[in-house]
Amino acid sequence: MIESTEQALGPTWNLQRCMADLILDAGSAESFGGDPRAFGAGRGLQKADQEALEKFKSQLLVYRDLARTALEDPLPDCFPITHALLEQADLWEGCLDAFLASRTIQSPYYRDVNPSFVAWLANSIWGQERWPFLLELAHFEYIEVEILRWPDEAPAMDLKAAPAGDSQVVFDGATRNLAYHFRVHEATKQDPEPASGETFLLGYRDSEGDFIYSELSAHASAFLARCLEGAAVGKAASGLGLELDDVLDLLIGLREKGALLGFR
C-alpha cells in the first residue's frame, strides 16, 4: 500500500518529473533525444535547467538504458519461456518499454517486479492480443517463483495423517490450485507456444522446498477448490458426485508429496 504522493510542486519535483518521463515513457528516447530543451520546457523547467538537459543529453539517456538493464535480469529469470517467445518474435524490448511506460512497478521490493509484470499483462493487449495464451504462460512461470519463496508458516499442531469424511484439509500456504485454458506446463524455451486445452494443476513445495506440480482432473481440481474454501472432505466430494474412497486416495497421495500438511 502506497500513501498518496505528496504534493510538493517545486523545482526539484519538476526536475524529477521530467527525468521520470524521460526514463519511463515509451517515446521519450526520440522526443527527448530530438530536442531536450523543448522536452524540459513542456514540463515547466526554467531556461537554465533546459540548457542543462541539452548539455547532459547523452548521459541522461544512459539512465533510460540503465532502468531497462535493471529489468533484464529479474524478468528473463522468472519468465524464461515468455522471454524466449517474445525474443524470437523480436518483441521483447517493445514489451519491456510498454511495461515500464505503464508505471505499474510500484513496490519497493525488487522481487515484486515479477508479479507486477503478470498483473500488467492481465490488463494490457500484450497479455492476449497476439498470443491468447501469453498471460497464462507468464502466470504459470511466476507461480513457480512465488511458491518457492512463499513465507514459511509455523508448523500446524494436532494434524491427522489420514483423512476421513468429516476431515478438513490443511494445505501448505505455498500450495496453489491452478486452472488454465492452455497446456502451459508443457511449453519450453524451444517450443514456447502451448497447445490449447483445459488444464488443472496443483503447484506446491516438496519436502526439500523445491517446486513441483501435479496435473489434476477437472473433478479433482474442483474438489480441492472446495477443500481450500474449508469444506469437509465428504461434503466436497458428494457435492461433485465423487466417490469418497477416490478423494481419500487423492488426498493421501498429495499429503505424501508435501502439498498438504494434514487433516483436522
Binding site: A8, Q16, M19, I23, A70, R103, Q106, P108
Partner: peptide, 25 residues
C-alpha cells in the same frame, strides 16, 4: 538519490539536482 516518482519505481539510483531546494528537501 531518488528512485521513484509519482508512485512508479525505477529501481535506478537517479541523480539529485545540486540545488538549495534539493538540499532543503
Amino acid at each position: 538519490c531518488w528512485t521513484s516518482f509519482g508512485g512508479a519505481t525505477t529501481h535506478e539510483l537517479l541523480p539529485m539536482p545540486f540545488t538549495r531546494d534539493a538540499v532543503r528537501h
